[in-house]
C-alpha cells in the first residue's frame, strides 16, 4: 500500500504522508466493500489461528495428559515453566541459533542474490542449481544431512582432519554448528531469491551515473546496491528471525535436543513436554512464551528498522 502511495505522490514529505495514510482507502478513489472482501481470509485466520491460540491460553492453566478431562490448576504450569532451568536455557539457545542463522545467511544470500541478478551466461543454470534446496522438505533435508554426517559411515569418517572424531552430536558446540549449517544450506536459497528480485529492481541509471563518476565495482556495491537492498534486507531478516525461533524438525530429526538438553530450543522443548511427556499444560505455557518472545522481537525489529514506515528506495528518481 505504501508503495502505491508513493507512486501517487512521490515527493511527499514524511508528515504529510503519514496523514495521507489514514485516508488510504479513498486515495485510489475506488469504492471497495471492505469487510466483505476481507471476510473469507478473516474467517480462515480466526478459525485456524486465533481460536487455537485462545485455546492454548486456556490449556496453559490446565493439567491434561491427552486422555480424560483437563483440570484447571491455576498458575501451576506457568510457575513450573518459568522456574525451569531447561526452559530458560532453551530461550537462549533459540536466540543463539536464530542469531547465527541471520549472521551467516544474510551476507551469503546478499552475495548470491546480487550475483544471480546479473546477466551472465551461466547464471540461469547455476541459479537453478542453487535453488534446489528450496524445493526439498525440511524433513528430507534433515534426514539426508543426518546420514551424510554419520560419524562412522558419513563424511566425517573420511574427513577426520576437519571433523576430528566425528562426534558431531555429542558436543554442544558441534551440535549447534550442525543445526546452523543445515538451516543455512536449506534457507539461503530462499533469501537469495528475495535479494535477487530486489537487486534486479535497482534502477540501472544509478550504476550508469556511478560509472560516469568513476566509481569502481566495489564502491558501486557498497554505495548503491547495499543501500538499495535495505528494504529487502529487513524483510529477509524478519523472516529469518521468525523462521529461526520456530525451527523444529531439524532439531527433532538431527539431535532430539541432545546431547542432554544442549540443543533443546524452545519450540522443541514445547513438543517434548506436550507430546513426549504428555504434559499438555506445560507445553501450552511454553508455546505462549515463544509466541510472546517472537512478537516482541518482531515488534522491536520493525520499530528499529523503520519497516512500519518503509521508504521507497526509488524516491527522487
Amino acid at each position: 500500500m505504501t508503495t502505491q502511495m508513493t507512486r501517487v505522490r512521490p515527493a511527499a514529505p514524511p508528515e504529510r504522508r503519514r496523514r495521507a495514510r489514514t485516508r488510504t482507502a479513498n486515495v485510489a478513489g475506488v469504492g471497495r466493500p471492505g469487510f466483505l472482501w476481507a471476510a473469507p481470509a478473516t474467517l480462515f485466520f480466526a478459525a485456524f489461528a486465533v481460536v487455537p491460540l485462545l485455546m492454548v491460553v486456556v490449556l496453559s492453566f490446565m493439567s491434561w495428559d491427552g486422555i480424560g478431562d483437563p483440570e484447571f490448576t491455576g498458575l501451576d504450569n506457568w510457575r513450573r515453566v518459568l522456574d525451569d532451568p531447561v526452559m530458560i536455557k532453551s530461550i537462549w539457545l533459540s536466540l543463539l541459533l536464530t542469531g547465527l542463522g541471520v549472521a551467516i545467511q544474510t551476507p551469503l544470500s546478499i552475495l548470491l542474490g546480487v550475483w544471480a541478478a546479473g546477466n551472465q551466461k551461466n547464471r540461469a543454470v547455476l541459479s537453478a542449481i542453487y535453488f534446489v534446496p528450496l524445493l526439498l522438505s525440511a524433513t528430507a533435508v534433515a534426514v539426508v544431512w543426518g546420514a551424510l554426517l554419520d560419524p562412522n559411515f558419513g563424511v566425517p569418517a573420511e574427513a577426520t582432519w576437519l571433523f576430528g572424531d566425528g562426534n558431531l552430536y555429542g558436543e554442544q558446540a558441534s551440535a549447534i554448528g550442525v543445526l546452523a549449517f543445515v538451516s543455512t544450506w536449506q534457507f539461503t536459497p530462499f533469501h537469495t531469491l528475495i535479494y535477487q528480485g530486489a537487486a534486479r529492481a535497482v534502477p540501472p541509471v544509478l550504476y550508469q551515473a556511478a560509472e560516469v563518476d568513476g566509481a569502481g565495482r566495489y564502491r558501486q556495491f557498497f554505495h548503491i546496491t547495499l543501500p538499495q537492498l535495505r528494504n529487502a534486507m529487513i524483510t529477509s531478516m524478519i523472516l529469518m528471525v521468525v523462521g529461526g525461533l520456530t525451527t523444529f524438525e531439524t532439531v527433532l530429526i538431527l539431535t532430539q535436543g541432545g546431547p542432554g538438553t544442549d540443543t533443546t530450543i524452545s519450540a522443541y522443548y514445547m513438543y517434548e513436554r506436550a507430546f513426549r511427556s504428555f504434559d499438555y499444560g506445560a507445553g501450552a505455557a511454553i508455546a505462549l512464551v515463544l509466541v510472546l518472545a517472537a512478537t516482541l522481537i518482531s515488534l522491536v525489529m520493525v520499530r528499529l528498522s523503520g519497516y512500519d514506515k518503509m521508504r521507497s528506495t526509488t524516491e527522487g528518481l
Binding site: L149, N152, F153, G166, Y169
Partner: peptide
C-alpha cells in the same frame, strides 16, 4: 568409543557398526 551420542540404533547405525566389523 567417542562417538556413541552421534550414533543411532533406529537408523541402523549401531547395527551396521557391528555387522561391518567396526
Amino acid at each position: 568409543g567417542d562417538t556413541y551420542d552421534s550414533v543411532k540404533f533406529t537408523n541402523n547405525g549401531s547395527a551396521q557398526l557391528v555387522a561391518s566389523g567396526k
